[in-house]
Design a protein around this nucleic acid. Structure first.
Lengths: 198, 198
DNA sequence: CCTCCTCTATGACTCAGGTCATATTTTTTC
DNA sequence: GAAAAAATATGACCTGAGTCATAGAGGAGG
């Protein structure tokens, strides 16, 4: 997370995107650095038959879509506002000026990429190894430990719909519903008024 | 890729690992920066029933296992020498000294992470969307375009066994064999004396 | 040239997760 | 506060990739 004041110093703008708006699409060339001010933004892909896969969900303070700024590639996914959102965005050239002026922030940026790579490494291996229940637990544990930094049994209230869990794990809603129920029976998680706790 | 001479200046050592040796294991704390001098190293996971998933294969000049140096996490996978290999390794503290002294190299490092993230983003979405043939084509196209930078139909000779393709895509050997044959029939790739061309 | 080992190949069978249909509950919207 | 939309839930059925077994082809090494 880069302080907003600093971003603004370098010429960043805060832009509002109503729920459902696309900020950029898969295949677009990356022109800006983005950081969520308020609301939630997701990055996703749609496969041939319209099924969604969510690469990540980004909340207040989190940046997204940086890799293509560094690597010479196009966006591998779309970005879409999940709720009405405000996003601070800074043009690529200015972003690099900022990094050059602040090596510590560059290092934190690298750290962010490294963490995301860690998550993807886990998910890709997990998804490939099948077993819906395992996949679901893994993503919940990842969110609990690394994103929300919560400890304690059932202390983490999962603020995701079954559909979102499905789209993050590459499963179907029905499978997620059945698997979460089965996991509850096994004592791996709790379901209270339809919300999942882990 | 960081010049070997520079790494050596900062105290790096070149170490030989015979085929099959593990350099580090999933869950280990990251202590060194690694770069392949000769041979090939893979990073992989084994799931509960022993099935392998290959996170990546690294050849001469490529570095691996850096993310946990930056992010405060353990290795998400093992590293193992595929062939007899020489690897140059530099202790974490010295590695950071090197980066601080050479911002341009730090930027290239960030670029490397960004590219790898790009690959993982593609793979995770692709693997989740099922359809073996699609998955296989995707990884082949990725390797062709981004790793080997080859153009032209069937100009890319895939130097991977069916088993390795399977382990990279999360499929089974038999499925890969059947799918590649089917893809050949469809004209998407060629098989000449058992080697796949794309 | 022969042996051993790895890799490719193919058929038969199984089953887990996807698909589809339908219902109920909760939340959102106007 | 009623209507519409979204989310959860459940059953029945189906299909495609996994599993298992077995065989042949190619390559390395003595």
């Amino acid at each position: 997370m880069i302080p907003e004041s600093l971003l603004l110093d370098f010429g960043a703008k805060i832009i509002s995107y109503p729920k459902g708006t696309q900020l950029f699409r898969e295949g677009d060339t990356a022109l800006n650095f983005y950081q969520v001010v308020s609301g939630e933004v997701k990055m996703n892909n749609y496969n041939l038959d319209g099924k969604e896969f969510i690469q990540g969900i980004f909340a207040s303070g989190q940046s997204f879509g940086e890799p293509p700024l560094f690597a010479d590639v196009k966006y591998p996914a779309n970005a879409e506002a999940i709720t009405d959102s405000e996003v601070i965005q800074l043009h690529k050239s200015q972003f690099f000026a900022l990094l050059a002026a602040h090596p510590d922030i560059h290092l934190r940026m690298t750290e962010t990429l490294a963490k995301r790579l860690f998550y993807k490494a886990i998910m890709v291996s997990e998804i490939s190894s099948q077993e819906p229940e395992h996949r679901i637990l893994r993503i919940l544990d990842y969110l609990k430990k690394h994103v929300h930094k919560i400890e304690g049994k059932f202390a983490f209230k999962v603020d995701l719909t079954r559909q979102q869990i499905a789209d993050l794990t590459g499963l179907r809603v029905e499978t997620v519903i059945r698997a979460t129920k089965s996991l509850e029976k096994k004592g791996e998680l709790k379901i209270k008024s339809r919300k999942v706790y882990r």
